[in-house]
Nucleic acid binder design. Structure first.
Lengths: 225, 225, 225, 225
DNA sequence: CATGAATGAGGATTCATTCAT
DNA sequence: GATGAATGAATCCTCATTCAT
């Protein structure tokens, strides 16, 4: 329910009509994400955002209190798309290994779709004052939690070694992010599909127990064959 | 020999005395890295840099043509400390697996020492115009090359699986960087030593052949025992 | 119709309301002409212009893209007052000699009214980049053309000798300008009226044919008597 | 004796050796005239002047107290070349009409030789504070005096009409200056020789008495024939 | 005498933010 | 609610001038 673009998150609007707030923020954020991603936060002016959103500069300040607020909203919209996609990809899957694979795949796919925005999140989170940055981190932790849960399930099922879940989660998350962060180079080495495949293979070797391995290979055969 | 802080790299100074240029640039860059790391590039004024370096604002422009030049120099100084430390850590080691371990360890150690600066590099490379960014990327590629070489040696020696070297290199590099990028969270989970240890264990599982494993365990025992 | 102060001339404003643009530019230019004339272009700051115009410094940049643009606009406003006054003075006159006299007189009168501004035009045209200077020169050529036409008419009517029209036009134009350029000295020798009278007498001797002379004297008598 | 480049004129040097002062100022002024003429006073930095003169920036301040001092010296050096050339051209001539012609010719020739510098004088005299500008004006008045004297002699000899000498002198002087000021256009109409010839013809018609005319024609024939 | 590195005040320009319409 | 003109603080950069060597 707070996944709608323009959801509130402590950012106060001066306009009361909630539906309007949501719609306007949606416009604003979409433009902001695009511009911030390409030109960076500081190189983008509020006028730029207003122009691209097809509204006046003044209007923005009725839905946001700061330029930094726009950044916050923009970053949250990115992070929330992560939080959205992963559960959607797991829908209906119950096997731990399948869920693990699906989660990684989904994460990489969103990152690929919002590549520029992902880079933006890395670049610009620090541009936020501490309290607003907190919100971003909470959001990231929440997403990580979903990955971590998949991992924990695999371990609990004896399919993976008993590794430090949170540390490995960072490896997995970072793997997804890297597709965006290092895209300038990776795109010359392989496509998204191969990237994910090689990654999963790597993680399989790193994590699976013999039992896990057997299932993993069975899964692979049933997919291929 | 162009690793000295303040090395030239296309950035032209108006002062001819080379020793002075090196010294002054050293001062300027040190202050810049510190300030940029904490406040970000755009929030830091040239006056800030000058004040912290104990020089006048005007002086900076005798050693640099732009504020962006200061950023370039700052980033290069970070990347060059990587390029410096890794070979130093490999000095005298000939065993591929030892070299591999030492390289990862060294990389993580530099990142730890220059944690803020590493974050800076992630945040601010995009603030540079394309041509200057090129220099940064070249530098990064070079560092990656050193890791990749260690990896390739292990594979060639039959100690590791025949993986896609460059892709895995990115995993390794990213692992080191993450210590800085996610330090706000990781520091609550473990110290650098444990981080590296768990990482190496993870990579060992992911990469080693049976032959590699035997040697790896022997190494571990000789270190521990 | 493009004689209004603030007429557009390739100088782009960021404000769309045309009437406002005209009004604001009028304010800005008036202040700029005054200040530039007294202190020179380089000694005058945009803040000075803003203060005198009763607006903020930032506002100026919504109507002008450069400080040089302000100069361009200022110079054009001066040159356009020339282009305006001369035809106005010739209105209703059909006799070539009368038109000639009226044109010179009008020119000298405008120069006298905008003495400082005329000096400004001489001093500062070269401070403009080539392309903008072009605009100034075009404007000057146009004004000269009006004087030249009067001269040519007199020649065609057999009232003046067949001299090189453009060269002599420069003499006439220069004569008018000199009243401003050398005012520091001329004002001690005579008033504007006498300056014009002596000038016309000089040019009459230099240019009139016997036929021209007869008419010239008749004109003088009818004016005096 | 104060025609030497670098003559003192109230401008105090910190160096005592007079010969050296003269030499150094010569170097400095030559570079300054060149640079100021092309780029204008404000666009030229002291460093520019120093570089072109092949000296250090600091050195200039040992021979001059101000950047404005450099301008003053530069302008004086131009005006003094006028004061120099005219008497030189009159040397040995005693006939008033010949002297008149020679003076105009000489003036135009110097202006032609130092065209850029002449424009500089027009542009930049106002950039000087009042007291230093005084020096320039005195110098100009002195030069005008030489032209005025030639004119007065012609009148006294009954060769020219009894016009207001100083006013007409301004016409003559202005005629010479115009060759520089309007050179961008005039050069397309004629060369210096023709410019002078047409000018002299114009002035002849404007000024000569019948007696003067007869001699003027005789002079022309003897030159031509 | 000469050098040229260092200073720091000064000014053009940008842009987040406000507010009258 | 929306607009966009106006503000003015903030910052980069230049350059005349000084002074230690």
């Amino acid at each position: 329910m707070d996944n709608k673009p323009g959801a509130v998150h402590d950012v106060k609007a001066q306009v009361s009509d909630e539906a309007l707030v949501t719609r306007r923020r949606g416009q604003i954020i979409a433009s902001a994400v695009e511009l911030f991603s390409h030109q960076g936060f500081y190189r983008t002016t509020i006028q730029d955002v207003a122009r691209k959103a097809g509204v006046s500069a003044g209007l923005i300040y009725q839905y946001v209190s700061d330029k930094e607020d726009v950044l916050l909203l923009a970053l949250l919209s990115v992070l929330e798309s992560y939080k959205h996609e992963i559960p959607a990809a797991l829908e209906g899957l119950s096997d731990p290994l399948e869920r693990f694979q699906a989660a990684i795949r989904a994460y990489c796919r969103v990152v690929d779709q919002r590549r520029e925005a992902t880079v933006l999140a890395y670049r610009s989170t620090k541009s936020l004052p501490d309290d607003r940055r907190r919100l971003i981190k909470d959001c990231e932790i929440e997403t990580n939690g979903m990955i971590a849960a998949c991992l924990a399930d695999c371990i609990r099922a004896g399919l993976m070694r008993d590794v430090n879940v949170e540390l490995v989660t960072y490896q997995l998350v970072t793997f997804a992010h890297s597709w965006a962060l290092k895209h300038w180079r990776l795109k010359e080495l392989c496509g998204l599909e191969q990237y994910v495949a090689e990654g999963l293979d790597f993680f399989a070797h790193a994590l699976l127990t013999p039992k896990g391995w057997r299932q993993w290979k069975r899964m692979a055969e049933s997919t291929t064959g």
